[in-house]
Design a protein around this nucleic acid. Structure first.
Length: 409
RNA sequence: GGGGGAAUACCCAAGUGGCCAAAGGGGGCAGACUGUAAAUCUGUUGUCGCAGACUUCGGUGGUUCGAAUCCACCUUCCCCCA
């Protein structure tokens, strides 16, 4: 059937692997299917990596299916060993609980949780009360260590060391699937591509314990054309929380994306119709700039809201295509007397520059500007003639603008 | 429990008594080129008023005129044997 949600996902590039394509396709062909994706509460915000998965959920929900966002309040206490070189640090219950609440509100951005159209459950609910003996008798007996060891996820860790705690992760995740199958008739688990073995384990478990049908599907990890994970910056991940990652920086992150990645990101991260995206596919070079803007705008809009998206869009426009935009940049206010001090001092105080040495280097290399005039001297002091409306505009490098405002008195 | 190895700046990684603020690479920052991209090239990358000085090489104490480098103890991590 043309225009099926499965095809949509596939064409958008979400699907990495599927256990049983025909069955899954069939399962999703009629509204009302239930599926789940798990999220481990390892941080107090979701990031763009999670966002891809949320998008997949949103697409499916729009097609009439019921997503379950499974929060790993229980498994989060263990840490998934796959694709990791080190053991995750064990988090306190309190931290986990805090993170879970954050996740909940962020999920609401894309998913409709009203009237049970989507569910959010915490696996601590059934994992925490588990009895060890019962668990290994009922569930542990179904797993072959030989097979587990063969899983790609453990290969690397076998060489570097793997604790028994982590080794259990797969069982717990499989048990989650079983539990969701029992409780909500959930027959499909979706996850990141690194979750493949864990997902299969769950589907197998359901088959054995319940003789039920269950399938798995993994989503492509968001990588750039060089195959590196996207959504990482020097400062860390690209968070969805505006407090952890400023909306302007967020916008700029996508605005400055590599040419080769624009289309893929449009497909994965926005709801723009495929037909429209196809129009952009043949564009090259400079012509891609408006497309990048579109991507940045759309994405900022879904995450931070339309008005903020408008605002940062204007800010960017003002900074890059005009000289002005004095009212749209980070601002620091200080008493007028502070102007006696060398500029460098003010900049380190405000944190615009981390240290004087760095500031000196900046100036020496011609990377610091006052009102778009390069600062020539290391001990430059702001003069009256620099002031425009009691403020000066400091530019660092090509793109970073700040406004220093001096109050009277 | 026994034996061996490792810990260096943001990361990887040289350095094994003075020539070490510490090679090299990555990353970052800035400049050139551009399209607010990529690639490339150049410079720069501990702090402090540049020169110079000061604090850095897991921690503490010691040897020495002088230690990242030698000694002792401690902490952490890895490997082998049990």
């Amino acid at each position: 059937m043309p225009g099926s949600i499965y095809d949509e996902l596939q064409e958008r590039g979400f699907i990495a692997q599927v256990t049983h394509e025909a069955e899954v396709r069939d399962y999703l062909s009629q509204p009302g299917a239930t599926f789940y994706i798990g999220f481990d509460p390892t941080a107090d915000s979701l990031h763009v990596g999670h966002f891809v998965q949320m998008m997949a959920m949103a697409h499916l929900q729009r097609a009439g299916h019921r997503p379950i966002a499974l929060i790993g309040g229980g498994t989060g206490m263990i840490g998934d060993p796959s694709d990791r070189t080190e053991m995750r640090k064990i988090m306190s219950l309190e931290t986990i609980r805090h993170n879970v609440t954050k996740f909940e509100s962020q999920m609401g951005m894309l998913l409709d949780f009203t009237d049970g159209r989507a569910l959010m459950v915490d696996n601590a609910e059934w994992l925490a009360p588990l009895n060890y003996i019962e668990f290994i008798r009922e569930i542990g007996s179904q797993f072959s260590v030989n097979r587990m060891l063969a899983a790609e996820a453990y290969k690397q860790r076998l060489e570097r060391g793997l604790t028994f705690l982590e080794f259990n992760y797969m069982l717990l995740q499989a048990y989650d699937f079983l539990e969701l199958y029992r409780r909500y008739d959930c027959q499909l688990q979706i996850g990141g591509d690194d979750q493949w073995s864990n997902i299969i384990a769950g589907a197998d478990l359901i088959r054995r314990k319940e003789r039920g049908q269950a399938w798995g599907m993994t989503l492509t990890l968001l990588t750039n054309s060089a195959g590196e994970k996207m959504g990482k910056t020097v400062g860390g991940a690209v968070w969805l929380d505006p407090k952890k990652f400023k909306p302007y920086d967020f916008y700029q992150y996508w605005r400055n994306i590599d040419d080769a990645d624009v289309i893929r990101c449009l497909k994965l991260l926005t709801f723009l119709p495929l037909a429209e995206i196809r129009e952009y596919e043949h564009l090259e070079g400079e012509k891609l700039n408006p497309v990048k803007e579109l991507l940045a705008f759309e994405l900022t809009k879904t995450i931070h809201g339309e008005s903020i998206a408008q605002e940062v869009n204007l800010t960017a426009k003002a900074i890059f295509s005009g000289a002005g935009a004095a009212d749209r940049m980070p601002e620091f206010t200080m008493p007028s007397a502070a102007r006696q001090a060398p500029l460098l001092e003010l900049l380190t105080e405000t944190g615009i520059i981390p240290s004087r040495s760095e500031g000196r280097r900046l100036i020496a290399q011609g990377g610091l500007y006052i009102n778009n005039q390069p600062v020539e001297s290391v001990d430059y002091i702001i003069s009256d003639s620099d002031l425009v409306d009691n403020a000066v505009i400091v530019r660092r490098g090509k793109k970073k603008y700040y406004r220093l405002f001096f109050t009277e008195g």
